[in-house]
Design a protein around this nucleic acid. Structure first.
Lengths: 241, 241
DNA sequence: CTGGATCCATGATGATACTG
DNA sequence: CAGTATCATCATGGATCCAG
């Protein structure tokens, strides 16, 4: 009979109970990376850059025991696929709010040592466009990474926006570049985006690219209050000065 | 020159950056308890039951350094008051989403060893009423704890709801009880609430109490998916069987 | 090659007692 | 009231090794 584990807060509070499951280091980042679809152990190791295999194993076991992750092991197949259960998928709104908070208060250009992936920013872009109800007509935009052949489709219609980790066949605009270049481009402040970005190719006719730039003008959102983070300093309206 | 601290993920991801500030044990619970207003060190020690003074000191220092908490020290006064900065207050939506997720997937009656405070549930009640757009006419409901003399006012009008940690002077309904009894009452499933609860006094005329019960019928919300938590078992529509 | 396990080092947290 | 001091324990990081 286990006594209350170390990670328990013993509060009658749903936030505390949630954090008992999600508060361990790396746990929410594992969920984040599984939100875009099932992944293998090594896929996660790659994306979570910095986690040790022992910790990843531990997190996946914990999340499985808590019913957030399901493990697909098929006999005769080497790969083990990890995917979110409905309860795990249901964390998306909470992760979105945390990411938006980070965007409002901690936005900063990527350090040279930081691996940059466009998908994290794309999730925030989708959310910001959706919340703002931006409507520039039906839009299908594809972002394709050249160094890893990932692709994402951002679709908008009637002010609602969706993001899927797959390339649509008929994009109005297509962005091509390395993961880092694409992330840097999305992190540029809106006014500078029309000029393009080194390493990023934009395909699509001028009118379509114009719609893309118009919609993206709301990203990133401005901080609601004064930039009160001690090291954040100036708020220029972009992630990059 | 400090190298990247242990708590850094070194990802260009706003969620990761947020978790670098908020991911330490107890950190978000400190924010939670400061969301209802400024508190003293010992107030926080009391509410956070289980935290050690060393850890609380550490968290408050970290949060202060990150610009989420401001410390009010007045010369000649013993007490030190901690309050959230605008950036700290801006975490409310994220904490709300996490608490709602906990409510949907981890709801369980309070264990006998769990101190129960009504305020955490009241935050969720406000949010659920507000999201559902419940409109039962202008409503002012006061919840008053007898064992600590805390009071909260839940106000609704035109489907919008607010919660403040203070007693309104003209409540339509007033609930009185110990912190535990009030929490247990709010955790009851809606159908059982009309019968009242031992230790909880409800003041107000019958019609007003009827409005109160009608509105509260949407709390707690049902889980979106099947109750997939390994230990959660049945979902009865209430926190208490 | 994937999916881990093992060993050790270290930093973060808990328990308890004490103090300006 | 608002912490600090000390010691113990546990979780995580880093490196390496191993089995199917």
């Amino acid at each position: 009979m286990p006594t209350t584990p170390r990670t328990a807060y013993a509060h009658f509070c749903m936030l505390a109970k949630a954090l008992e499951r999600l508060g361990d280091r790396w746990a929410l980042l594992v969920v984040r990376d599984l939100l875009t679809g099932p992944k293998r152990f090594t896929d996660l190791m790659d994306r979570l850059g910095g986690i040790t295999p022992r910790t990843l194993t531990q997190r996946l076991r914990d999340l499985e025991a808590d019913g957030l992750v399901q493990v697909d092991r098929e006999p005769g197949r080497r790969e083990v696929w990890y995917r979110l259960t409905p309860a795990g998928l249901d964390l998306a709104p909470a992760l979105d709010e945390l990411a938006l908070w980070g965007l409002r208060h901690l936005a900063a250009p990527p350090a040279p040592s930081e691996p940059a992936h466009p998908e994290h920013l794309l999730r925030s872009v989708r959310l910001v466009l959706d919340r703002a109800g931006i409507d520039v007509g039906p839009a299908t935009w594809v972002v394709r990474t050249l160094d890893r052949d990932d692709a994402f489709t951002l679709r908008g219609r009637d002010g609602r926006w969706s993001l899927v980790a797959q390339a649509a066949s008929d994009p109005d605009v297509e962005l091509l570049g390395t993961r880092r270049d694409l992330a840097l481009y999305l992190a540029t402040r809106p006014q500078a985006r029309a000029a393009g970005h080194p390493g990023v190719t934009m395909r699509g006719d001028e009118r379509e690219i114009g719609r893309f730039l118009d919609a993206l003008a709301v990203f990133p959102p401005l901080s609601t209050g004064p930039a009160s983070h001690a090291t954040a300093g100036q708020q220029t309206g972009g992630l990059v000065d």
